[in-house]
Write a protein that binds this DNA or RNA. Structure first.
Lengths: 245, 245
DNA sequence: TGGTGTGAATGACTTCACAGCC
DNA sequence: GGCTGTGAAGTCATTCACACCA
């Protein structure tokens, strides 16, 4: 991420066997991209694809793609390529997309409402089964058939409804409290849109998406592109001490 | 990244001088986080902060924070720490946040509308000055005081209104076309929420945020946590060829 | 004493280049 | 001939450890 943004890495506390669980984080980040490209190809009727073609469709180097797939345990056919449908199914299996995940969204301001209605989630196997907010003005509202409930009911719903992923879209000040509620109720995967760092116990995976951060990174590039043409250079200014005694 | 999602790196086509423009990408990604933490501290009345404390607030190692700041040309005071206000101003300068950026959002479905209303953008110096869509049912709508215009007017608006960042929130099928419009009109920074890889000329910075990708990464961790307790292991299954002759 | 600045060591990721197989 | 699978090399990023300074 973002980056997306970058997420806290989960490190298995007691993983004895070397499994697919310890794939490099960088590889895991790319798997969803491969999957998306494979879906497109499949819909277009393509049956077989070379690493070169698939890599181009996902913006990576073909050697990296081959290495990624090789690490997964997937394999192609020399001189031929990869079977699109089989590879897609294989990657979906590694990502755990064979069974649908059950998602709760907490915080239904503009962003949370957009997330609740975003079709891309259900399309890719994520069922949004719970919406929660603390604002009485929003509780009770119906968003595309799902009722917004009081956040006080969150813990119970997590247990009763098998929710295993929590999406935090609250203001920053409320985010840590919500994260604590999620963790206490047994959720071990959190997607955080609030602009703050969450403290969670080991074994809980947190990924963070901060929309403003992405714009600031673009701003950096924008700024230093123009600087290349002018003369102002931050690095060559003499260093000013940034603390006083 | 997060988002995070990962963005295409900009590589200056003809950068002669070694400036702040070629900071490591990893460092640039962290600067907005430092800035956010510094803002919090500043509002809390803190005047000076150690690398240890600031690192904890941003979830990084303190040595890395010091190295990042050192690369920027910012410096603290040994035995004291960094001056919060001065460091924040310095990082804002490096990120190019001293002058506000002018942003257009193209595609005003649920996500685009949420972005248009997201207060975090204007709070951090990004002025949303243009909203564009192709759907006549949305064109003409007023979103918090900004009119949604026909995307046919995009190129003219970019030139007349000094827009320098484009945010694409259209469906995937339209995204490349919109990107071409942006690039042709001179925009060199694009934030892409559509689930597809954009082709752009060198010198144009693209960052991609795919919300479903983040959930799929969480799904991976979720899946392999439970696998650790059961016996099914993808890696140890015998390799099946994924292409047929 | 407390905390920065930074070489050196480690580790992670990516690319190259090519052997081997279909 | 074409394409995969993978050691080896190269690049980039992070952490360690400590000299140095207020």
């Amino acid at each position: 991420m973002t980056t997306t943004g970058e997420g806290t890495d989960h490190r298995a506390p007691s993983g004895p066997s070397a499994t697919a669980a310890d794939l490099p984080a960088a590889t895991v980040r790319r798997l969803p991209e491969y999957l998306r490209a494979l879906s497109s190809l499949g819909e277009a009727g393509v049956e077989t694809v070379s690493s070169e073609t698939l890599a181009a469709a996902t913006g990576v180097n073909s050697a990296m793609l081959r290495k990624d797939l090789s690490q997964l345990g997937a394999s192609g056919m020399r001189g031929v390529g990869y079977n699109v449908a089989a590879l897609a199914a294989y990657i979906a299996g590694v990502l755990g997309l064979t069974k649908d995940s059950r998602v709760a969204i907490i915080g239904l301001g503009h962003l949370g409402q957009a997330l609740a209605r975003y079709p891309g989630f259900s399309e890719r196997g994520f069922d949004i089964v719970g919406l929660f907010d603390a604002d009485p003005g929003i509780i009770g509202k119906d968003l595309d058939g799902i009722l917004v409930r009081d956040v006080a009911l969150l813990a119970g719903a997590i247990r009763d409804e098998g929710i295993n992923i929590g999406v935090i879209a609250t203001p920053g000040a409320a985010a840590q409290h919500v994260a604590d509620l999620l963790v206490d109720a047994g959720v071990t995967s959190i997607l955080n849109f609030a602009p703050c760092v969450l403290a969670v116990p080991q074994g809980v995976a947190v990924r963070k998406v901060d929309l403003a951060v992405e714009l600031q990174i673009l701003s950096f590039h924008e700024h230093h592109k123009t600087i290349g043409r002018t003369n102002t250079d931050v690095k060559q200014q003499s260093r000013r001490p940034l603390a006083e005694t």
